[in-house]
Structures are given as structure tokens and as C-alpha cells.
Design a protein around this nucleic acid. Structure first.
Length: 666
DNA sequence: AAAAAAT
């Protein structure tokens, strides 16, 4: 069996390394993947494929393909060069702060002060010795460099050389040392390892400039896990020195090449749990054009941006390249990055499939495939897209599936794509609820709007979850009418608006976010102290994920769930299944229980549209005209046949009777 | 049943 566990060799040139059906079945025989117990290991299994395996498996790739793409790509780039200048900067800035909707296509990034400024700095400092206080900017250098590369595909090879030169400049010796360390860490290396302090043995002038203070590498839990020093050091610079439980548990097996099912409570650091071993295993090799070596699939664009941002500095110090590929963003940067070669691709399914269909992405060299929020990705609606993508990934590679709520729902995916997985469940799926304060309020439909406002009217950031996009728009408007600064976030907004709203919320300009489940999973915003569910979640897992937007990384948080009489039974069941252990409590506007949850009666001072638009516009972009004008944020899509600003018209005056969304219906 | 995910 262990023979089957290794990467299938590319036995003959030109043939894809595929297992036969028989081999696959044989390898799967006798396994019950999802039933593996917590932190179960299978000692009989040989450590799986190493970097060398991957290298050999890639010897069969077709070089002419890259050439074809290159020429395609060049013409693409030329055609678009003029106006997509702003776009080409880099997708990263999407996560930061976009702006006016009418300019979002091309000017978004440019108006993003921070990332723009950083990037400019980067470029201009690119050839200079770096100052230590520019450490953060260094992380962006990959993107900057690629900016230049993008313009000229012919000198692809040359730039590759340049790039590795640039990497080496960071620290030549350390980089090489690291490779040795990595190699030994794949399997035969003992668990514990002490890294030399960088300033003692391995510091060059370049690194000396980059390291502001000596990084204490002793007693570093990440080093003990066998991760390369460059990564450990980079984490330590951000004060991350001790792994969270899920990281502690999953990283060693992931480093060893095992397929891993990882479950850790919300906000427990799952991104690093799969990101660190993935980058480690990718280090030392380069991606060929159009052939990413690892992919991370995520359910929403925002989450894709977050994962990309979180891994960015680590990708950089690893000497690798990553790219965010998702819908709603310009194609050209994604196409050119792929043409250049991307080691780690972070993608939402739709755009990735699109790029594959265009021939821009080829998954035949993918060694590691990762599903974030795996149980969600295995649900109807995503499953088809996911299988389509995973079917293109060579069998025998590594698979990492992570979620706070990994359950049997992923069995089909596990059975089909995973080999001898090890399960690391550091927390029961419901563990996170214990760190939160929960309230479930049974209310009358006519009170819903007021209770919502009272609970949401508080100091601190609040996420209000609703069931529908329309509901999100409506509730946000109603909150503003009652004097609460709220904005809606849902998939019906264009990407520019989505970014704008989310960054305004992250910056604290908008204290209340009214969101659909687009924001239910994975999205991290600091200091969200209250999650208010005014429409019940679809199931207990959604309860956990929504609730998990608060109380992250050990912080406190409050979760308030509203239920109408007809929802009483269902909500109580959800609470039980989620392990919350509370009962519904009747509540009316002004009740003590609302005050106990931090809420208070809102001022009633109408928050105008222009005020909202002001707040949604990043500082530094304001007072440039348009304010309050016909452009900009309008609260999202309108119902057919309905004009802007009149969306109370079709409610027959019965809105408050019926409450929000499905309220009042059976 | 809705939302998400390509244009």
C-alpha cells in the first residue's frame, strides 16, 4: 500500500502521472478516511513524496505550451496596456480599500493610499539597499518585480535569473542553508531542531539591514515543528512565535506530505496551518509558466484576498510567487502572473475554471491542493465546480482540507481525492462557542426592526447577518434611518463596492456591517464584539461560522440571535446542535436583556446617503467632488421595476408587521 | 431556499 502512497512516477515522458483506477482503489482499500480519530497517525505508511518527487513528476510537462501561452499573453497585455495600467498593479489592493464605484475598474488601486504608496516606495527603493524600517515593503517586492516582468515576456528567462538574484540578495547563505534544512526535515529528521540565531552565523549585510532587532529563535514553537528558518523568522518578526493547536497538530504531517483533514475552531489560525507547510514544500523549486504548483480554493473573494494577504510575507521570504485569482477582478494581472509562473495560486472556483478554459492555467503540475472551508466547498452548489477543478489535479499529490466544521459532508470529496488522510481535530466543531456570550431573543415581528436597532446600537464593531441580499440592503437602510451607521455587504454588489464596504468596516469608519453569509466564513476583522443574527442561520454549522466572526484568537465576543415565534423551534434546535446551551428568551424593545448585550436605544438621527458615502470613501479620497452626487454607492441592486430611493413603496405599509426577510411567513 | 462562485 505504501507504494501506492507515493507520487505516481511519470514513467514515460509525455505521459501524465496518473494512477489507474485499479491503483487508486487498491490504495484506498481498507480505509475509512473520515472516521480517522483525532490526530490519528498511520505509522505503516511511508512518508510521501518529497520535493524531488515533484520535480521528477514535472519533467513531463510540455514546454511548447508555455510558449503558446506566452505569445497569447503578450498580445493580451499589449492590447490592454494603456487603460489597465492601474489594474495591473496587483490584486492585493483589492483587499485594502477601493473607492468610487464609477471608477472602480481602473482607478481602484490607485486610490488606495496605503498599497499604492507602498508599492511606489517599493519600486523606487527596489535597487537600493533596504532600510530596516522597510521590512514590510519588502514583502511586496514580488509583486513589484512582476509588474516589470509583465511587460515583456520575451526576457522571461532573464528575469527568472534576476528574480533569484533578488531572492539571494535577501540572504544568500541563509537561503541555501534553508534548503538543506528542508530536505532533512522531510522525513528523516528528528522532531526537535534548534536553529542558529540569524545574526550569529548567517547574517549578511542585506539581512542585517532587514532585521530590525535580533529575533529570538529559541523557544520558538514553529522552529520546533521543523519549519524553515526564513518562515519562522518572518513570523517571529510579527510576534508569532508559538503555534496555535491546529498548527501544532497539522503542520508536521502536512510537512511530511500527508493528506490532512484539519479542524480548528474559528479564528484559530487555519490559514497558517496549511500555508506554512505548503510553502515549505514548495521552496527550492519554481513554477513553470501557467502551471501553479499548489492551489488553495476558497468560497468567497474576500476570503481569497485574506488568505493571499496573510501568506504574502511568507511567500516572499520563501522566494516563491503567489497569485490571487478570483472573479470581479481584472483578468490581465491574473493572466500575466500565470504566464510568468505562480507557485501558489489562491482562487475562487469560478474564475479558476474560467482561466483553465482559457488555457491560462494548467493544473497538471499541482502538487498540493487545499480546500479552505472544505465542508462548505463540498456542499451542493460548490461541489460540482470543485470536482471539476480537482479532477484536473494529478492524483497522488497532497490534499489539505480545513474548516472549523469538518463533518461527514466532506466524505465524497475525501473518498474521491484523498489518500490515507490524517485527521487533526484540535477542537470540537462547537468549541468556539464557549468563549462567547450567547443570547437568543424571541421577539414579535412588529418589534424586529426596533430590537435590531437597539441591539446594534452599541460601541464596538458589529456584524449583522441576514438571509438575503435584499434583506441586507433593507436592514442597512433601516438602521441608518434610525441613526446607526451601517452598510450592507453581499454578493450582489460589485467587487468595488464589496471592497469599499469591507475596508470601511475594517477601518472602523462603518461600525455596523449588515451581511449575507458571504461574510459568514473565514473573514477576519479585528475587534468584532457582537454578531447579531436577525435571520436564523441555515444550520448549526452556519451558526458557528457566523458566530465565529467574533471572539477570534481568544478574544471575547457576544452573539445575539433573533427568532420570531414561527422560528422558535428551529432556532432552538440550532442552538442545541451548535452546543450553545441556552434557551430562547422573550424580549421586547427596551428590555434589560438588550442592554445586557451591550445595546441601547438609537439616536434616531437619520444617517444620510451622503454621510454614508463619505464614510465609505477612504480618507484622502474625500472632497474630490461627486460627494452626495448621483454616483457612488447606492445600496446595491434594486428590484426590477423599482427606482432608487423608493424601496419602501411596495411594502404595503406592512413592513414592520412582517419584520425582515421571511418574517411572518410560514 | 439562499448565497456563493465567471462574464
Amino acid at each position: 500500500m505504501s507504494h501506492h502512497s507515493t507520487t505516481p512516477a511519470a514513467t514515460s515522458a509525455g505521459k501524465k502521472p496518473r494512477w489507474t483506477r485499479e491503483q487508486k482503489l487498491a490504495a484506498q482499500k481498507g480505509k475509512n478516511a473520515a472516521s480517522t480519530k483525532n490526530t490519528t497517525r498511520r505509522p505503516e505508511r511511508e512518508p510521501r513524496s518529497r520535493r524531488d518527487d515533484y520535480d521528477s513528476s514535472r519533467s513531463d510537462s510540455r514546454p511548447q505550451r508555455g510558449d503558446d501561452r506566452r505569445s497569447e499573453n503578450r498580445s493580451y497585455g499589449e492590447r490592454r496596456d494603456n487603460r489597465s495600467y492601474g489594474e495591473r498593479r496587483d490584486n492585493r489592493s483589492y483587499g485594502d480599500r477601493p473607492q468610487r464605484s464609477d471608477e472602480r475598474r481602473y482607478d481602484n488601486r490607485r486610490d488606495d493610499n496605503r498599497s499604492y504608496g507602498e508599492r511606489r516606495d517599493n519600486r523606487s527603493y527596489g535597487d537600493r539597499p533596504k532600510r530596516s524600517d522597510e521590512r514590510r515593503y519588502d514583502n511586496r517586492r514580488d509583486d513589484n518585480r512582476s509588474y516589470g516582468e509583465r511587460r515583456d515576456n520575451r526576457s522571461y528567462g532573464e528575469r527568472r535569473d534576476n528574480r533569484s538574484y533578488g531572492e539571494r540578495r535577501d540572504d544568500n547563505r541563509r537561503y541555501d542553508d534553508r534548503r538543506d534544512d528542508n530536505r532533512s526535515s522531510y522525513g528523516e529528521r528528528p522532531q526537535r531542531r534548534t536553529f542558529a540565531r540569524p545574526q550569529q552565523t548567517t547574517t549578511t549585510r542585506a539581512t542585517a539591514a532587514r532585521i530590525q532587532e535580533p529575533i529570538d529563535m529559541s523557544d520558538n514553537g514553529f522552529a520546533a515543528l521543523g519549519l524553515p528558518e526564513v518562515l519562522v523568522e518572518r513570523l517571529a518578526r510579527d510576534g508569532i512565535t508559538q503555534p496555535f493547536p491546529i498548527q501544532q497538530a497539522a503542520i508536521p504531517d502536512a510537512l511530511a506530505g500527508r493528506d490532512v483533514l484539519g479542524r480548528g475552531r474559528t479564528g484559530s489560525g487555519k490559514t497558517l496551518a496549511f500555508g506554512l507547510p505548503t510553502l515549505t514544500r514548495l521552496m527550492g523549486s519554481k513554477a513553470r509558466p501557467h502551471q501553479p504548483r499548489a492551489i488553495v480554493l476558497v468560497p468567497t473573494r474576500e476570503l481569497a484576498m485574506q488568505v493571499s494577504d496573510a501568506l504574502q510575507p511568507l511567500v516572499h521570504v520563501a522566494g516563491l510567487h503567489h497569485k490571487l485569482v478570483a472573479g470581479g477582478m481584472p483578468y490581465e494581472p491574473q493572466l500575466s502572473a500565470l504566464a510568468r509562473g505562480v507557485d501558489l495560486l489562491i482562487a475562487t472556483p469560478g474564475r479558476l475554471s474560467d482561466l483553465i478554459a482559457r488555457g491560462a492555467a494548467d493544473l497538471s503540475a499541482v502538487q498540493i491542493a487545499i480546500l479552505d472551508e472544505a465542508d462548505h466547498m463540498a456542499e451542493m452548489g460548490f461541489l460540482e465546480a470543485i470536482t471539476e477543478i480537482l479532477d484536473l489535479v494529478p492524483e497522488g499529490g497532497q490534499r489539505l482540507l480545513f474548516s472549523a466544521t469538518l463533518d461527514r459532508g466532506i466524505d465524497t470529496v475525501v473518498d474521491r481525492y484523498l489518500t490515507d488522510p490524517v485527521t487533526h481535530s484540535t477542537d470540537d466543531g462547537t468549541a468556539s462557542v464557549t468563549t462567547m456570550e450567547h443570547h437568543a431573543l424571541l421577539i414579535e415581528p412588529r418589534d424586529k426592526k426596533v430590537v435590531t436597532a437597539e441591539v446594534a446600537n452599541r460601541s464596538g464593531r458589529t456584524v449583522v447577518f441576514v438571509r438575503t441580499k435584499l434583506g441586507a440592503d433593507r436592514v442597512a437602510t433601516e438602521l441608518r434611518e434610525q441613526g446607526i451607521v451601517a452598510a450592507a455587504l453581499h454578493g450582489g454588489l460589485n467587487q468595488g463596492q464589496r471592497n469599499k464596504v469591507l475596508s470601511a468596516f475594517k477601518d472602523g469608519r462603518i461600525p455596523v456591517l449588515v451581511a449575507t453569509d458571504v461574510a459568514a466564513r473565514g473573514i477576519h476583522v479585528d475587534d468584532v464584539s457582537l454578531v447579531l443574527q436577525i435571520d436564523p442561520p441555515a444550520d448549526h454549522k452556519d451558526y458557528l461560522h457566523r458566530a465565529g466572526r467574533t471572539a477570534r484568537a481568544g478574544e471575547a465576543g457576544t452573539v445575539v440571535t433573533l427568532a420570531l415565534p414561527h422560528q422558535r423551534k428551529g432556532v432552538q434546535r440550532l442552538l442545541d446542535e451548535a452546543g450553545v446551551g441556552i434557551q430562547l428568551t422573550k424580549a421586547r424593545p427596551g428590555d434589560d436583556i438588550i442592554a445586557a448585550a451591550g445595546g441601547s436605544r438609537p439616536s434616531g438621527d437619520f444617517v444620510s446617503q451622503s454621510t454614508l458615502e463619505d464614510l465609505l470613501t477612504p480618507p484622502g479620497q474625500r472632497d474630490r467632488g461627486h460627494r452626495g452626487g448621483p454616483r457612488g454607492y447606492r445600496g446595491g441592486p434594486r428590484r426590477p421595476g423599482q427606482g432608487r430611493g423608493d424601496y419602501r413603496g411596495d411594502r404595503r405599509g406592512g413592513r414592520s408587521e412582517r419584520g425582515y426577510s421571511r418574517a411572518g411567513r410560514d
